[in-house]
Design a protein around this nucleic acid. Structure first.
Lengths: 66, 66
DNA sequence: ACCAAAAGTAAAGTATGTTTTACATTTAGA
DNA sequence: TCTAAATGTAAAACATACTTTACTTTTGGT
């Protein structure tokens, strides 16, 4: 599964720590999600999309391995 | 987080085991997600929504506790 | 009422998400 | 260039998703 979190974050000029704060997780969690180290829970995905004013499907996308 | 999986499944007349098959998880996992026992991963949420031809946001919604 | 399919549930085990702490590297601005 | 902020990364501990097996209960059709 790939995502555009890093891009959206750049668009809104928000920091990893800032985003982490707003969605209630650690900075490392945001970092790991951005670098594809792991797949967030649906709750996290919803929160992240919400912060960026987008749908989950706009930010997260299935890929071949999934 | 609440979801409308049970409703969508009824709409499409598909069984828990059938859905489980199509998204590559166990029947119990589908049951647990429907009864709110746990929050699926973003990948699962995407797959479930895909099966029903809906967006993740249409099927899954944040609630107060989240 | 009977039977089969579907759904509910539970416990133990495994996989993976998330936190915390801590340190190294990169980037941007004065 | 110097410094501070931002990012990358790693390991240990913990929480939660998910599987498997197995049994019970419900539901729908004949």
């Amino acid at each position: 599964m790939k995502n555009t979190v890093r891009v959206e974050r750049a668009r809104e000029n928000i920091t990893q720590a800032g985003l982490a704060d707003r969605i209630g997780v650690s900075r490392q969690t945001v970092n790991a999600i951005e670098s594809g180290k792991y797949v967030p829970s649906a709750v996290l995905a919803l929160k992240i999309a919400q912060v960026f004013g987008k749908t989950v499907n706009e930010v997260f996308e299935l890929e071949d391995g999934d």
